[in-house]
Design a binder for these strands. Structure first.
Length: 962
RNA sequence: GCAGGGAUGGCGGAGUUUGGUCAAACGCGCAAGGCUUAGGACCUUGUGCCUUAGGGCUGCGAGAGUUCAAAUCUCUCUCCCUGCACCA
């Protein structure tokens, strides 16, 4: 039995003593592999094992391929999460504390986590410990934390230079805002971690008749303005008259407050709903005068508290009017104008995008397609005035969805156009003509509440610093950088291209959090995705700075200018900074050596932000020869079919998995268990399967001495052939980071082959040894500890981690040998089949197969077969003829294929003598299998009536019973 | 809404770039047999449907098309997933 813990500790110690992973520049070709470093608010879990196991596997592979490989590591602590975390601990947040218990964090440590610094320190220690325990091949000398003052100097340099190049700009920006704390509010700052979803909508001005005051009707659907029959307000809401940027409006008191964060708002006084209901207002487009009516569903806390009513297309408006009528309210009798028609004729398409799940099998009949709002209510059996709001809400969404997708305008300036075009066009037109203005709202269905219990609003921040990723020249440069990057998986290339075009202004400083001070507004901190775009540079000289006792103050921008950008010279930098000149030169050499070939890897969540910003910053700040060379994106880890998440409570801490199953099996499952970009599954059954297979390989290794065959037989050539084709394929796959492909071949298929070899009586020690050694070498990147152990059990005294990846010997690959072996196998299947079927024949009842004859097809059949496969025409082949073969014989053979003539493909078959010899040498085995005498014959020499059925890929079989 | 990706057996997922050798890799599950005091451990075999000679039929979201031939190419449609920024 393999004792994982024991071998892991043993080999980790050996690697460390041999300093295998401490890489320094040398004459070899370099590659530096970096992975997005972890945020330090939890110990590592299985997802981390995937994210760091993937580059570690590749690093180990490249090392075996002869590269000088650097795999460094660091920790990310800047930003607000750790601070928010400390606050939550202080508030005794139960969810968080439960999550920490899953990770076995002791209560006394949790108690100390009211201090953000302590949290960072605690988890950094914990993460490093577990990463080491899992056996990652990291050069730990270069580790750093993004909050270190030394590191901040690199970030400062980055921002000085971004500003020099004109990439930093100032402007305004809408942001979730807590009016109580006067702070920007992100997901981490809200109750239940809700992301404030900011949306821009349009408020259309309906001017009161004979006055200068307007009703600002907030709407998502300005294109329905042609069908407005009235305005709705809510009689239970407080309204005010207020000046918004100089113009006067009726709006809810709450709206006036919220808008004050976006416009200059001056409240002139309150106005009662009853007074409002007496007013009439003018539709700015149709110039129709419409009344103001009470709308029960209108909320003062959403939008402006004033809405326009379009009963023909808005279910809520329709229902509200019906209710008013039912109450005897004087509702003007006007036509409900249909404005939008679905492309399907007669609105038959209503409800076509609704799923059965949504409808729960209950579809009402649509009776009024001429009033779409009513039609949707009817479809949902919600057409009565007493229908509940959930159903109306759903009807609204459905109407909006279908009209947006399939709707064509019937009226107005955009008549005949698609609904989205009309919506956007009208919005722009109305704003331009001064008949509307835009406001920002929170689109979340429920109120977004700050952790301080205050309702969040949208604020427009002024003088905000941005990095201008929208700069066209910069984008162009990034596109050209990206053209030189190999992306794994390659299918993500297109996604990256579109993201480079899409990314725009990015706010880069904020008021709170840990991190580097923003040089141009030192009261603010550099936002923590912006401060981690070029940190990989720091790995290349971190340990040199440390051993030379360099202080943060000495790391002036000129140091980085020289090291990274070759500006100035070492002597003057030494003089300016006081750093030893030799050390400066070493930093530069190290940077240039490692940075000329880098690979960057992360999870999919970082693609649209970090990885894109990474490329932009490299393009802006580094000389072209140091641009990134490869970018890798790997998927996440699911747990037994479900997404792993703290809220589901199914997070598997990395330490637990490693402890319970061993680092290597878990690593294999998580890293090689799925294609690079797809999620992989943490599945205990699969894990046990891996452990069992390791035992199998180990048992073959330990019993190697008992294998004593000397002569090379057919099956030995077969195993050599399999091995060498496997090496070529696996090498190619790993070069492209198709780790799963490679290891399905290397691992699972090897086990099948080893079993087959033994089953077929393979017994050559040298062949087996060659095979097992190569297998062990190829297993080393993914299961490094097990590979070391196997290597030594094979009698080797070196370390696998320092060995070379095996080379394929192409001459050992013999397709004929492999094809013949496949033929033997399928012939055995066929024989079983035939015996099963013929055994049922009455004449054979009670008898057993005594002689089984295998008849190998004549050589000429290959030619005939391929002629047929090429032309798909039997008579053409027959009339062409084959030398020394009668037309009758030829057509009889070809007619065997008449039914599937079109699916034949030209094939290289082994020679018939070769096939014959292959079967002869397998005779003993087949005989044992069936307990009958096996004869192998050539078709030309056979007297069997079934001989003619033999085809090049399938010998004929005759079973005789006795 | 905008952008990107996807739909294949009981499940996870190969195969799609370069149409044929694909009832469909590999893994899991399931079934039978073996081993065993027992087993949720392990081994072997099987796992769409039909079949008295190794065969046939049906199948890769839906529909249509191109082709001798389509999971793979073209068109239309439906549904699903992810991201959308100050947040790491």
């Amino acid at each position: 039995m393999i004792n994982y813990k024991e071998i892991e500790l043993k080999w980790q110690k050996a690697w460390e003593e041999a300093k295998v992973f401490e890489a320094e520049p040398n004459e070899k070709e370099s590659i530096m592999i970096t992975s997005a470093i972890p945020y330090v608010n939890s110990p590592p879990h299985m997802g981390h094992l995937r994210t760091y196991g993937t580059p570690d596997t590749f690093a180990r592979y490249m090392r075996m391929r002869g590269f000088n490989v650097l795999f460094p590591f660091g920790f990310h602590a800047t930003g607000t999460p750790v601070i928010g975390y400390a606050k939550r601990i202080a508030n005794n947040d139960k969810d968080l504390i439960d999550a920490l218990h899953v990770f076995h964090v002791p209560d006394e440590d949790i108690a100390k986590m009211v201090d953000p610094e302590y949290i960072a320190k605690y988890f950094i220690k914990q993460q490093e410990k577990e990463l080491r325990r899992a056996g990652f091949g990291i050069d730990w000398r270069r580790k750093f934390i993004t909050t270190e003052p030394m590191f901040s100097k690199l970030v400062e340099w980055q921002f000085y230079r971004l500003k020099d190049k004109g990439y930093l700009v100032q402007g305004t920006h809408p942001v979730g805002w807590c009016p109580n704390e006067n702070n920007a509010v992100g997901q981490h700052d809200t109750l239940h971690d809700v992301q404030p979803d900011i949306e821009e909508i349009v408020a259309v001005k309906f001017k009161e008749s004979g006055s200068d005051v307007s009703f600002p009707c907030a709407t998502y659907r300005p294109e329905t303005i042609y069908g407005v029959t009235n305005i709705f307000i809510n009689t239970d809401v407080e309204y005010v008259i207020a000046k918004v940027d100089g113009a006067r409006y009726y709006l809810s008191k709450d709206a006036a407050f919220r808008l004050s964060f976006q416009y200059g708002v001056e409240v002139e006084g309150a106005i009662t709903p009853d007074e409002l209901l007496k007013k009439k207002a003018v539709n700015p487009l149709t110039k129709e005068e419409v009344p103001v009516l009470p709308g029960y569903f209108v909320k003062g806390t959403v939008g402006t508290g004033v809405v326009m009513s379009v009963p023909s297309h808005a279910p809520f408006d329709y229902v509200a009017l019906e209710r008013l009528k039912a109450q005897g309210y004087a509702v003007p009798d006007v036509e409900y104008k249909k404005l939008i028609e679905l492309r399907a004729p007669d609105n038959k398409g209503i409800g076509r995008t609704v799923t059965h799940e949504e409808l729960k099998g209950k579809t009402g009949q649509v009776l009024h397609p001429e009033i779409p709002a009513l039609a949707y209510l009817e479809l949902l059996n919600a057409a009565s005035p007493s229908a509940d709001d959930t159903a109306i809400e759903f009807a609204t969404k459905l109407a909006y969805r279908e009209e947006a997708r399939h709707g064509i305008m019937l009226v107005g300036a955009y008549k005949g156009k698609k609904e989205p075009e009309a919506r956007d066009g009208l919005k722009a037109d109305l704003v331009k003509s001064g008949d509307a203005f835009t406001i920002y709202i929170l689109a979340n269905s429920d109120d977004v509440v700050c952790r301080c219990k205050t309702k969040v609003v949208v604020n427009i921040v002024k003088n905000q610093w941005f990095i201008n990723y929208g700069d066209q020249a910069w984008k162009k440069q990034v596109h050209s950088l990206f053209a030189g990057v190999k992306v794994y998986p390659e299918k993500l290339r297109h996604t990256f291209e579109t993201l480079i075009d899409w990314i725009d202004l990015r706010a880069t400083e904020r008021a709170q959090g840990l991190g580097t001070r923003f040089p141009f507004a030192p009261e603010h901190i550099i936002e923590s995705l912006s401060d981690s775009t070029i940190y990989m540079v720091y790995y290349t000289f971190d340990h040199i700075l440390r051993t030379n006792n360099v202080t943060p103050e000495q790391l002036k921008p000129e140091f980085f200018d020289y090291v990274i950008d070759s500006k100035g010279d070492s002597a003057s930098v030494a003089k300016l900074t006081g750093i030893d000149e030799m050390a400066i030169k070493r930093c530069k050499e190290s940077f240039e050596y490692w940075y000329k070939n880098t690979m960057r890897q992360s999870g999919p969540d970082l693609v649209p932000n970090h990885l894109i910003m990474y490329m932009f910053n490299h393009a802006a700040l580094l000389p072209e020869k140091f641009y990134p060379k490869r970018i890798v994106v790997n998927g996440m880890v699911d747990y037994e079919g479900e997404k792993m998440s703290k809220s589901l409570g199914n997070i598997v801490p990395m330490g637990d998995g490693v402890e319970k199953y061993g680092s290597d099996p878990v690593r294999f499952m998580v890293v090689a268990g799925a294609e690079l970009e797809t999620n992989t599954e943490f599945n205990t059954d699969a894990l046990n399967g891996i452990i069992a297979r390791n035992e199998f390989i180990n048992s073959v290794v330990s019993s190697l001495d008992e294998v004593r065959g000397m002569e090379l037989e057919h099956i030995d050539y077969w195993l050599y052939s399999k091995l060498n084709s496997k090496i070529s394929r696996a090498t190619l796959a790993l070069d492209e980071m198709r780790i799963r492909d490679a290891y399905t071949d290397i691992y699972y298929n090897s086990i099948t082959e080893l079993k087959w070899y033994s089953e077929r009586g393979g017994r050559n020690q040298q062949v087996l040894r060659d095979y097992l050694e190569a297998l062990t070498l190829m297993m080393a990147p993914i299961m490094p500890h097990v590979a070391e152990e196997l290597w030594h059990n094979l009698g080797r005294s070196t370390m696998v981690v320092k060995e070379r990846w095996p080379d394929a010997t192409p001459s050992m690959v013999n397709e004929s040998t492999e094809a013949i072996e496949d033929m033997v196998r399928s012939t055995i299947d066929d024989i079983s089949n035939v015996i099963e079927l013929t055994g049922k024949i009455p004449a054979n009842k009670g008898k057993k197969p005594s002689v089984i004859t295998i008849i190998v097809a004549s050589e000429w059949k290959k030619e005939a077969y391929n002629m047929l496969a090429k032309g798909h025409d039997i008579s053409a082949v027959v009339s062409h003829g084959i030398k020394d073969v009668s037309k009758q014989e030829l057509s009889k053979f070809l007619s065997l294929f008449s039914k599937r003539i079109n699916s034949l493909v030209e094939t290289m078959f082994p020679g018939s003598d070769e096939i014959y010899n292959g079967f002869v040498s397998s005779r003993e085995y087949i005989q044992k299998k069936f307990g009958a005498r096996i004869m192998v014959e050539k078709e030309g020499e056979s007297k069997s009536p079934r001989a003619g059925r033999a085809t090049p890929g399938k010998p004929s079989i005759e079973v005789v019973y006795a």
